[in-house]
Simulated assay, not measured.
Amino acid sequence: MNKYIAKKILCMGLSSLLCSMGAEAQTIMKNNVSVSNLAVSRTENKLFISIDIDVSATGIKNNRELILTPSLTGIGDSLMLPQVMIAGRNRYYHHLRNRLSPDAIFLYQYGGIKLIEYRHVIPYESWMDNAVLNISKEICGCCSTMLSKEDALLIRLDLGPKISVPKVFVPQFVYIQPEPRPKINAVKGSAYIDFPVNRTELYAEYRRNPEELMKIRATIDSIKNDADIRILSVSIKGYASPEGSYANNARLAKGRTETLRQYVQELYDFPDTLLT
């Protein structure tokens, strides 16, 4: 294999790697040159640059050549890296005859390679910490006449020493809602409602009834107005005085209790199933 065609391959162990950066695949130069597996890393005194360059869609004619030039630009300094040339058939053999320097440029014939594995190592300098890695593309014709040129940004480096900031523990408060555990309580109250003799009609203003009916309302309201309590049932039990026959007293007790049930139901709009 001709030494001008051979590509450089870098194989070394990085035992003292300090910082590294990478970037995702991107298409540059009007969609006919793309780069992937871009990585920049450094040790104390070396900077490593790794780029995979896809040139399969460049379409270089016989008398033309494409030159790719990576470069680093920082504050007050810059560095041009070795170039990559993809040449058409005529230009390729022209460069072979004129012995193009393999240290300054990597030469490839168009059609002979699709993916160029660009690997380069340079001495590390402090200005490179925040430098910009660019790449330019030149299309040249016969006699190396430049026909077009484009520039593209590949990555902004951030390889300087990192300041270690102590982590501050910030607790996260999480509210755990307890599972609902319903508790059933019974509330009792008593009232003495006056009815006319031998009658079952309820008169709210009769004798002490206003005060006694207020006791019933106070008992129910103490539960109904509590948002955390739900009324499950209301039970009403009624009695009648012992005078007269048992049958008549049973009729009065049942009738008067039913009358009070209807009064409470209408007062609170309770469903029928709630009151017994």
Rank of each mutant, 00 (worst) to 15 (best):
residue 177 Q to D: 01
residue 181 R to T: 08
residue 182 P to H: 04
residue 183 K to Y: 00
residue 184 I to S: 01
residue 184 I to W: 09
residue 185 N to T: 03
residue 188 K to A: 10
residue 188 K to L: 05
residue 191 A to S: 02
residue 192 Y to Q: 02
residue 192 Y to S: 03
residue 192 Y to R: 05
residue 193 I to G: 06
residue 194 D to L: 06
residue 196 P to I: 06
residue 199 R to A: 11
residue 200 T to G: 07
residue 201 E to F: 12
residue 201 E to A: 14
residue 202 L to Q: 10
residue 203 Y to W: 12
residue 206 Y to A: 10
residue 207 R to H: 04
residue 207 R to W: 04
residue 207 R to D: 02
residue 209 N to Y: 14
residue 209 N to G: 14
residue 211 E to V: 05
residue 212 E to S: 14
residue 212 E to D: 09
residue 213 L to D: 04
residue 213 L to V: 01
residue 214 M to E: 13
residue 215 K to C: 00
residue 215 K to I: 12
residue 215 K to L: 15
residue 216 I to G: 01
residue 217 R to W: 10
residue 218 A to I: 12
residue 218 A to D: 13
residue 219 T to I: 08
residue 219 T to W: 06
residue 221 D to G: 04
residue 222 S to R: 15
residue 224 K to Q: 06
residue 224 K to V: 11
residue 226 D to V: 10
residue 226 D to A: 14
residue 228 D to E: 11
residue 229 I to A: 13
residue 230 R to S: 01
residue 231 I to P: 09
residue 231 I to T: 12
residue 232 L to E: 02
residue 236 I to H: 10
residue 237 K to D: 01
residue 238 G to Q: 06
residue 239 Y to A: 05
residue 239 Y to E: 08
residue 242 P to L: 03
residue 242 P to C: 06
residue 243 E to T: 10
residue 244 G to S: 11
residue 244 G to W: 08
residue 245 S to N: 11
residue 245 S to W: 00
residue 246 Y to L: 11
residue 246 Y to N: 05
residue 246 Y to D: 07
